[in-house]
Design a protein around this nucleic acid. Structure first.
Lengths: 294, 294
DNA sequence: TAAAAATACTCCATAGGTATTTTAT
DNA sequence: ATAAAATACCTATGGAGTATTTTTA
């Protein structure tokens, strides 16, 4: 039972196909046929049921699948842990698009000071992909908006931040420093992110609880687009505190909403069954410290 | 990181020597040098400190050692579990010499009826070796006398059995059915097993608590020898109930001791961190049922 | 100087590739 | 008829062996 064999086995089981798994592994299809033939010869029973062009796991195959996952994960974690000196090495961070450009740069700047030799990679992913990649071990840590419920992920809250009403300069509600009464925005056109972003969900939830039915006049796939559209008078929107903090445009104004303002929780997640690199732990510490002070 | 590589690595670490590990693995010494060179190249740092002819683990090597043990154990367990159909396959039982010939034959006969296709292997080992082999995963289950304390072993009590005074036919104490008063055996010559057997320890403990100082006139390495020596008038001894049960010799007589008779606990142990084959579980069940009725 | 690990070099096993056949839909 | 897995055959990589050198105690 070799490790490459087990990797191939997992890929075949996941794709339910030798041919597609071969592509995914970057080898020829006969190579996989041979690997599996050897594997089956070694363990003494078939692991796949070949019903014509259907490939399915046998009972033994199911057992092996679970075990092979453990073995491959353990081998990968071992490689990581042995190499881990806490200074060099790679840290792969995931963050949702409404956090990544606003919150991470400052945090990462401080992190780079602490561990200048580390290579840091940031992947911008929507919540769903982020969680999946975190679970698969492709991400060391994920920074995202809560709540997140996933059986195999560890989740920790960092902080809660308000959402601000974003208006174009010169808008009738943009004047003065006082909070905007909710009734005032009832008839305003709104710009939202598309539903791949959890932020639009948070805003929609807030509107429902406050009985607001804002008129949606546009949707964008980036918060930057929303901000620019607002600046040019296409409508209003809600943006998170972290976006406001780094927004220097003179064309837009942020205002608090009267009463209980909308907000979102920011948290961090990781796969507790995988090895946590010392870099990952340091980054987590930094996030916690940052959340405490900021 | 290949599994044979990790196996070699473990052997080298344990022997602190490439040459001796090579012998143990049945390969040449250069083969191991090359394997380790590849391993170190792959993980990017040395795992051994070669201080002249001293071979030691580096810090990374220590980490790898623990992980490699897990991986190898997991791979072996996987192979066992995948092959395990609960019927065929091998069950390796360990038992101490004062249990194996008296208790196991009847139990194994029943077990063979239940699972006729299974190959059962019995290893007769003294407690210490039995525990070590159980811990290493070379034994599926061990049957032995308690107490056993070992951090990585699961231990379960099966039953307690009395020890009987064994006398030659015609001995002055061998007459009648009544129990023998302790004072009577004070001056009798005794035959014991050598100290590799825990039974001699149990008997010595009993004698100490009852303030008996029996005269030891002989030691043997097998209970059968003790029994024969007793039969031929070389002295008395204590034998466990299970030995009495199968003793059909007309030359010996078993008698209870008056008051609190000596006894020993029989139990079973296994390594809970290793895969328990379905055969092993069935055998355990049988032992428990046997202990309940017998 | 002797014992042990590393290196040099050769050889063979075998894993994987290409081409093809088989099989089931 | 077609798509997918198995088989046949060949090649090349590389792992292990023998012989030797290097190292250090």
């Amino acid at each position: 039972m070799e490790i490459p064999q087990l990797r191939s086995f997992l890929k075949i089981a996941e794709h339910r196909s030798f041919t597609r798994a071969a592509e995914a592994c970057g080898v020829s299809q006969p190579a996989l046929s041979q690997q599996m033939a050897r594997l089956e010869a070694e363990i003494g029973c078939p692991v796949f049921e070949r019903q014509g062009r259907q490939v399915r796991l046998t009972e033994s195959g199911e057992v092996l699948y679970r075990k092979a996952q453990q073995i491959v994960a353990l081998v990968e974690d071992t490689a990581r842990q042995v190499r881990d000196d806490g200074e060099t090495g790679r840290l792969v961070i995931g963050a949702i698009p409404t956090i990544a450009p606003y919150y991470l740069p400052a945090v990462l700047a401080r992190f780079r000071c602490e561990v200048p030799k580390a290579r840091v990679e940031v992947n911008e992913l929507v919540t769903e992909s982020l969680i999946r990649n975190c679970q698969l071990g492709d991400l060391d840590v994920g920074v995202l908006a809560l709540p997140v419920e996933h059986p195999h992920l560890e989740v920790e809250t960092l902080f809660e931040e308000p959402l601000w009403l974003l208006l174009p300069v010169g808008h009738r509600l943009a004047k003065g420093d006082q909070a905007v009464p909710i009734a005032e925005i009832q008839q305003e056109p709104f710009l939202l992110l598309d539903d791949a972003h959890c932020l639009s969900g948070h805003i929609r939830n807030f509107c429902q609880t406050r009985n607001l039915q804002p008129v949606t006049t546009g949707r964008a796939s980036q918060l930057a687009t929303v901000q620019e559209m607002v600046a040019h008078g296409h409508g209003l929107s809600f943006v998170p505190e972290m976006a406001r903090k780094v927004d220097i445009s003179p064309l837009r104004v942020h205002k608090r909403l009267e009463g209980q303002a909308p907000s979102r929780s920011i948290g961090v997640c990781w796969n507790p069954y995988r090895y946590q690199s010392r870099l990952a732990l340091r980054f987590l510490e930094l996030l916690r410290a940052e959340a405490g002070t900021g």
